[in-house]
Simulated scan of single mutants.
Amino acid sequence: MNKDIQFLKELQNELKTQDHDSQAAPRFWTVGDYEWVEAREENAERYSVYLPYIAEAYVLDDYLEDLKEDSELSKEALTELKNDDFDDPIEWIQKYIDEEAELIPERKVHIVRPDTMFLTKEEAKSHINLNKHHYTSEVHTYAMTAWRAPKVERLLNLLETFNWDSIIDSQ
């Protein structure tokens, strides 16, 4: 029991002293990250190319660079590619790679990773460090407010204000 009370006292101190990241109480931390999503043409920050024959999509610029090293392409195709001797990259891809290839406009959006919820910012940072392989290089802690969640608010308030020493004294 004393170990549990000590844990609660340490948690209480951490809750009271940690950075709030501009969030109102009650607050908790999640994992924030970014992902590329399909967008309207006018909002595109990049393009990916979808190749139906292999059911794969690749970032267009990276794909074209990788193709320059592809020894299986015809000499004519490689010459056109290396000299940028085409008006539209999708036309070149449709001519030499997959006639049904499509360009997909994309934009980067911020997301809150599902199944992440931490009482302390430090715990969220630790989770990120231990699980970097699941996230992008832009992963970060993300503070959130448990808006209109009276039970969460009451619980966190109790954790932050309860006199845990009173339990030790009464034993």
Rank of each mutant, 00 (worst) to 15 (best):
D19Y: 15
D19V: 13
D19S: 15
H20N: 06
D21N: 01
S22K: 15
A24Q: 12
A25Y: 06
R27A: 09
F28K: 10
F28Q: 11
F28R: 08
T30M: 12
T30G: 14
V31T: 08
D33F: 03
Y34P: 00
E35D: 13
W36T: 05
W36E: 00
E38G: 01
E38R: 13
A39W: 01
R40G: 04
R40L: 14
E41L: 14
E41C: 06
E42F: 13
E42P: 09
E42V: 10
N43W: 14
A44W: 05
A44G: 09
A44S: 12
E45T: 00
E45A: 05
R46H: 06
S48E: 13
V49I: 08
V49Y: 02
Y50G: 09
P52E: 04
Y53D: 09
I54M: 12
E56V: 03
Y58A: 00
Y58V: 06
D61V: 00
D61I: 00
D62A: 05
D62I: 03
Y63A: 03
Y63S: 02
L64R: 08
K68P: 09
E69S: 14
D70M: 01
D70C: 06
D70H: 01
S71G: 08
L73K: 02
K75L: 02
K75N: 14
E76K: 07
A77H: 05
A77M: 01
L78H: 02
E80N: 04
E80Y: 02
K82F: 01
D85A: 10
P89H: 01
P89E: 00
P89I: 12
P89G: 06
E91D: 15
I93W: 09
I93Q: 02
Q94W: 08
Y96V: 04
I97D: 13
I97P: 04
D98L: 06
E100A: 10
E100D: 07
E100R: 10
A101D: 11
A101T: 08
A101E: 10
E102Y: 12
E102T: 12
E102L: 13
L103E: 08
P105F: 03
P105C: 04
P105L: 10
E106L: 02
E106F: 02
V109R: 05
R113K: 13
P114A: 14
D115M: 13
D115T: 08
M117Q: 10
M117I: 07
L119T: 06
T120V: 08
K121S: 02
E123L: 11
E123P: 04
E123C: 05
A124L: 01
A124E: 01
A124G: 07
K125M: 09
K125C: 10
S126F: 07
H127V: 13
I128T: 10
I128R: 14
N129R: 15
N129I: 03
L130C: 14
L130K: 07
N131L: 04
K132L: 15
K132S: 13
T136P: 05
T136A: 03
S137W: 12
E138A: 15
V139C: 05
H140D: 12
Y142D: 11
A143V: 12
M144P: 11
M144H: 05
A146W: 06
A146M: 10
W147P: 01
W147D: 03
R148P: 11
R148T: 06
A149E: 10
A149C: 09
A149K: 08
P150L: 11
P150R: 14
P150K: 05
K151H: 07
V152E: 12
V152W: 15
L156P: 15
L156F: 05
N157C: 14
L158P: 09
L158Y: 15
E160D: 08
T161N: 11
